[in-house]
């Protein structure tokens, strides 16, 4: 399944860079919604744009574990979406950031072996995340959850994962009321396809 052109496994490349980006994006989203005190975030430059990254070790280790398993699913080609759900105090999602990813059968760098265009795209994703108008009501009074949309096979693959994953309940999955989709960004290249949209009321 993997491409070994030029001795590079582009599937791994795709998974790695996606996870790398997702980490940054999740931090950014969490920061944007004030899930944690802003003190634990520090400014960093990623993909050429300023971002906020948590320095809280536990949060970081949690995210890393999640992304580790995300990577596993990506490599298994069993990841459909990764969702950052902002939950209200009751645990119901009020805003969902959905990264829909798709990996081609044979990923390759195409003409972009220095990933310049990928980086450019990631930058846009991050900026869109930052610029997205959020529901200010929940600010400071919310938590977040990471949801991976996969298959049963994917769940099996995560048996030995970093985190014990559980299946989402519908209540955690769906935003109550009349939510709408705001597409933020779509990008495709020969390594992967990804689009980000926000679901919110």
């Amino acid at each position: 399944m993997t491409t070994m052109a030029d001795g590079i496994d582009y599937l791994h490349v795709a998974a790695d860079i996606l996870c790398d980006f997702l980490e940054v994006a999740v931090h950014m989203i969490v920061y944007r919604h004030d899930v944690y005190p802003s003190a634990i975030f520090e400014s960093r430059r990623k993909y050429g744009v300023p971002t906020k990254m948590s320095v809280h070790p536990e949060l970081n280790s949690y995210l890393q574990s999640c992304l580790c398993d995300t990577r596993t699913l990506l490599l298994a080609r069993d990841l459909d979406r990764i969702v950052v759900a902002i939950l209200d105090t009751s645990g119901a999602p009020i805003t969902k950031y959905t990264f829909e990813v798709w990996l081609p059968a044979e990923p390759s760098a195409g003409g972009d072996e220095y990933l310049v265009q990928v980086e450019q795209a990631f930058r846009e994703f991050l900026l869109k995340v930052g610029a997205c108008d959020t529901d200010m009501e929940a600010l400071g009074n919310c938590s977040f959850a990471l949801q991976l949309h996969s298959t049963a096979a994917g769940l099996l693959a995560l048996k030995n994962g970093a985190l014990p994953w559980v299946t989402c309940e519908t209540a955690q999955r769906l935003i109550q009321g009349d939510a709408r989709i705001v597409p933020l960004k779509s990008y495709y290249c020969e390594l992967f396809k990804m689009q980000l949209y926000v679901e919110k009321r």
Binding site: S108, G110, G111, D112, Q117, C189, E190
Partner: peptide, 11 residues
Amino acid sequence: NNERGRVEEKN
């Protein structure tokens, strides 16, 4: 010719 074109074309 341009590399972008190549990417897309491949896609």
